[in-house]
Amino acid sequence: MPHLRLSFDLRRPSFASATSAQLAETVLDICSWADRLGFDLTYFGEHHGAADGYLPSPLVASGVAAGRTSRMKFRPILLTPFYHPIRLAEDLAIADLMSGGRMSPVFAAGYVHSEFEMYGVGRSERRARVIEAVEVCRKAWTGEPFEFRGETVRVTPRPAQRPGPPIIMAGAAEAPARRAAHLGDGFDPAEPQFWDWYRDECLKLGNDPGPWVPRGPTFLHVTHDPDAAWAEVGPNLMHAGNTYAKWIAESGHGTSNWYPPINSVDELRAGGAYQLVTPEQCIAIADELGADGHLIFRPLFGGTDPERAWASLRLFESEVLPHIEVTEA
Rank of each mutant, 00 (worst) to 15 (best):
E125P: 06
G143H: 12
A133S: 15
A140T: 06
E125L: 11
C137G: 06
G164F: 13
T142A: 12
G184P: 05
A133R: 09
G122Y: 09
E125T: 15
P166Y: 11
G150Q: 14
A173E: 04
A160N: 05
A128S: 15
P159T: 07
P163V: 09
V155S: 05
A170Q: 03
A128T: 10
A180Q: 08
R126F: 02
G186H: 14
V155R: 06
S124M: 12
R179A: 02
C137E: 12
D185F: 08
I131F: 07
E174I: 09
M169T: 04
R126D: 04
E174P: 05
E135G: 01
G150L: 14
P166A: 06
E151P: 14
E147N: 14
P176Q: 09
P176S: 11
A177Y: 00
T152E: 03
G164C: 13
L183H: 03
E151L: 15
A140I: 00
R149L: 11
H182I: 10
L183A: 04
R126N: 09
P176W: 00
L183D: 06
R178E: 11
A170P: 00
R123V: 08
R178I: 11
R123C: 02
H182C: 05
P165H: 07
G184A: 14
R129H: 02
P166V: 11
R179E: 03
I131N: 05
E174C: 05
G150Y: 14
V130D: 00
A172T: 12
P157N: 07
A128C: 04
A175D: 15
E174M: 08
P176M: 04
R158G: 05
C137L: 14
H182N: 11
V155P: 02
S124F: 07
T142V: 08
V134R: 00
F148V: 02
S124N: 13
R154L: 13
E125I: 09
A177Q: 01
M169Q: 13
W141I: 02
R154P: 06
T142Q: 10
V134E: 03
E147F: 11
R129F: 00
K139R: 15
P159G: 07
R127F: 02
K139T: 04
P157L: 08
A172F: 04
A170K: 00
A181Y: 10
I168P: 01
E174Y: 05
R138C: 08
P176R: 06
R179C: 04
A177E: 03
H182A: 14
R127V: 15
T156Q: 13
R158N: 11
V130I: 06
E147Q: 15
R158L: 14
A160P: 00
H182L: 14
A160W: 09
E135C: 03
R138M: 07
A173R: 01
S124L: 12
F187V: 13
P163A: 10
A177D: 02
P159D: 05
W141M: 05
V136Y: 04
R127Q: 13
P165G: 03
D185R: 03
R127D: 06
K139W: 06
F146M: 01
T142E: 15
R138I: 07
E135S: 07
A173H: 02
V155L: 09
G150F: 13
V136S: 00
V136H: 01
R162S: 15
P145S: 06
F187N: 09
A173V: 00
R154H: 10
G143L: 10
E144G: 08
L183P: 02
G164R: 11
A170V: 02
R179D: 01
R129S: 02
D185H: 12
